[in-house]
């Protein structure tokens, strides 16, 4: 039982009661009545909030539901994120922000629930967004305060370290938070720090891994397909033409390499505990591999490598990945 201080007196006559968010409901701007607490974040004018520190907490007042609720978050990285990052480091306005991913860990009601690898801000002025869904039970929302915590894991796998922007939470935008009654089975989700096509996310050989948030219930199957170009696009330009023969050789080598590899090993590291394990997968007839994650694992980092039939790992491989049965983006 959380200790209660008998003499606590936080209220003043000037505190304004704010209408809580209902379910369904959403908070999309900084002046949303439901947004009652910001730590390490500033209210947005056109979005909900921007993170300004490497640990942040948002508190939303919600009407306590009777049934589980899905909390949908949209995280955005844009040019303003880069501006804030520059200012936080006293850099010039035109200083180049390293094109690295931003890694965020998300807690709900004090419990780590998810992690997300965010793309760098697009150079064309558009935004990079990532969606995340966390399911909350009614009893978790005891008093009606939904707390969303954001921080950066202290330790990340060495293969990811160089790909992540230092102090990367600065400037990340929490664009909106919406609440929906939980109706469907919640599947797992993953993020690679790169834009995807429909359900598939690209996992380039560098950094070679991604982040998975397993489903809260039931097994989460992450499907991996080695990226092989069966047909190269027509080269355009002199440089592309000059490089074409070498590129074809490389693709051919990749196709040969993939055909020779019938097993894959995926390093799975818990974002919360750092516990590591290796998951061996045999190639399925369609050439994909499956990594099974249990619901209790929590968010994990995953890095797949092909295993040579002759022994050893092949690291020079791009992948596509998706969660089997995942909700489409």
């Amino acid at each position: 039982m959380t200790y209660q201080l008998a003499s606590l007196d936080l209220a003043t006559d000037f505190d304004r009661p704010l209408a809580p968010l209902t379910v369904p409901g959403k908070a999309v701007k900084g002046d949303s009545a439901g947004l009652v607490l910001l730590d390490g974040a500033a209210r947005g004018a056109y979005r909900l909030a921007r993170l300004v520190r490497q640990e942040a907490l948002l508190g939303l007042s919600v009407t306590r539901p009777d049934l589980p609720v899905d909390v949908h978050l949209v995280l955005v990285v844009d040019a303003f994120s880069d501006d804030m990052w520059r200012r936080s480091r006293d850099l010039e306005e035109d200083a180049v922000v390293p094109r690295r991913h931003r890694l965020a860990r998300v807690s709900v009601q004090g419990r780590q629930r998810a992690a997300v690898l965010l793309e760098p801000a697009p150079l064309d002025g558009s935004v990079a967004s990532q969606r995340l869904t966390v399911r909350v039970r009614p009893e978790e929302l005891g008093s009606g305060l939904l707390t969303l915590g954001f921080d950066v894991p202290r330790e990340v796998p060495s293969w990811l370290g160089g790909a992540v922007l230092e102090d990367g939470l600065t400037g990340v935008c929490i664009a909106r938070v919406s609440l929906e009654p939980a109706t469907e089975t919640l599947t797992g989700s993953l993020s690679t720090g790169f834009a995807g096509s429909k359900r598939r996310r690209l996992v380039p050989r560098y950094p070679g891994g991604f982040v998975v948030n397993p489903a809260p219930a039931g097994r989460t199957d992450v499907v991996l397909r080695p990226r092989v170009l069966e047909q190269r696009p027509r080269p355009v330009g002199r440089r592309a033409l000059a490089r074409e023969p070498l590129a074809r050789v490389r693709d051919g080598a990749a196709r040969v390499r993939v055909r020779r590899h019938v097993r894959a090993v995926t390093e799975v590291v818990s974002v919360t505990s750092g516990r590591r394990r290796q998951v061996l997968s045999d190639a399925r007839p369609d050439g994909t591999f499956v990594v099974a994650l249990e619901p209790g694992e929590g968010p994990v980092y995953a890095r797949p490598r092909l295993l040579r039939t002759s022994g050893g790992e092949s690291r020079m491989q791009d992948w596509y990945c998706w969660v089997d049965g995942s909700v489409s983006d």
């Binding site: 201080l5 606590l8 505190d15 009652v36 607490l37």
Partner: peptide, 30 residues
Amino acid sequence: SFSSVELRGPDDRADVRKVAAARTGLDPDK
């Protein structure tokens, strides 16, 4: 953004206390 007091009452305090205690390694029940 970091130094305002926005807790509305004992309920908010209890909820945020659990989060803060988990972060700091303190026992929220003491």
